[in-house]
Design a protein around this nucleic acid. Structure first.
Lengths: 206, 206
DNA sequence: ACCCTAATGTCAGTTACTGTCATATGGCAT
DNA sequence: ATGCCATATGACAGTAACTGACATTAGGGT
């Protein structure tokens, strides 16, 4: 009975832990719905909290700021892409693997295409979200660099892989953005592939 | 006497116009001082307005949000760099020209080195500023791409130049950030040159 | 000197966010 | 089952970022 000894960490598999995860997800989803309907500014924290039936104060125990909701809303897309890239055969050239991973992540069962479109439009029209999202992409370079390093046995923290990850991230982002602004295209695949193709040639032949 | 005809635009050279420019600059400088002293959160809009002796409401007639001050404070650095790059001889290879432009922009009379260090520290420690600044760099790719296109007679709006500009922007940013975090180094030159050198080889040999 | 446009000050109101304390709820040992 | 404890939640008050509306002032041309 070492009840006085530190409890270490509460097992994240408990009933309470799952309930917390669920509340967090419900908040993010309710927020997304309201943002898509009325827009960012017209949606108050009170609205979001009321939709999930928690107190506004509780909202801030899950998200540091209103802006940070954009991370929670968009994070499944990023997770899907990284998972898809990790699942590509290692012998595939990096460029082809990235392109295929984008397509895989948009296959049925992963991420809903129309939802991604709404999300990109929301980012485009919401300055606060745009800044936060670009920063998130900037930070996520490290995760992408780690996956890239895993394919080539390279250094996950090397400057080179970080720059490659940054270039890929920019290419994908630019491609998806172009697609979201174009009502005709069914999926972002074409745009992304075109942007990625530009990376095949050396960027800076000194 | 066509006083009824639209006044077109008030000449931006008038006395009032200069006074406005000056007020804007004084607000940005006062804000920078206060941020460096007390930090972002501990500085209120009222403080900044009081330091320049204008009403808080007037502040918002110059800057849409408190966060946007980071753009005004950092913009001289960007202008200096772009001007320096534009002044490099056209026959110089792009990579060398960018490296030299960074050094030029930090030469006496342009940008104060110790001030840049304070600025980078401020960005590092202020989430709201960090996001806004990364977005600003993201948007500024277009201006850099235009300068690059000017050196090579390329398309200023071409995807390729945009990606090159993005890669350069990232390399510089990464280099300067590393320098600001390192108390020993006198200037960011070394770090930036090292980061830029990584771009000489093809990033994605498909 | 006069007018007209635009910048500024004042003020009230909304909303994002935070500290604090009381309450409730799940996890765990008895 | 019962009681204890840590932790999540609710309630409330307070600060500060913004915004709209209106009165006042100050430039700049006639």
């Amino acid at each position: 009975m070492d009840t006085l000894v530190k409890t270490a960490e509460p097992p994240s598999t408990g009933l309470a832990a799952r309930k917390k995860q669920r509340t967090r997800q419900r908040l993010a989803e309710a927020a997304a719905e309201l943002f898509y309907e009325r827009g960012y500014d017209a949606t108050t924290i009170d609205d979001i909290a009321a939709a999930v039936d928690v107190s506004p104060r509780t909202f801030y125990r899950y998200f540091p700021t209103k802006e940070d909701l954009v991370v929670a809303i968009g994070e499944t897309s990023i997770e899907s892409f990284l998972a898809a890239l990790g699942a590509r055969p290692p012998e595939e050239p990096l460029l082809a693997a990235v392109g295929a991973a984008v397509d895989d992540a948009l296959a049925p069962g992963w991420v809903d295409t129309s939802r991604v479109r709404s999300f990109m439009a929301l980012i485009r029209d919401t300055p606060a979200f745009r800044a936060r999202w670009v920063e998130e992409a900037y930070d996520n370079r490290h995760r992408l660099a780690a996956v890239i390093a895993g394919r080539t046995d390279g250094d996950p923290n090397g400057l080179r892989n970080l720059l490659i990850a940054g270039a890929i991230s920019m290419a994908i982002n630019t491609g998806v953005q172009c697609w979201a602004d174009d009502d005709a295209e069914p999926g972002p695949g074409d745009f992304v592939h075109r942007a990625l193709a530009e990376l095949a040639l050396p960027l800076l032949p000194a």
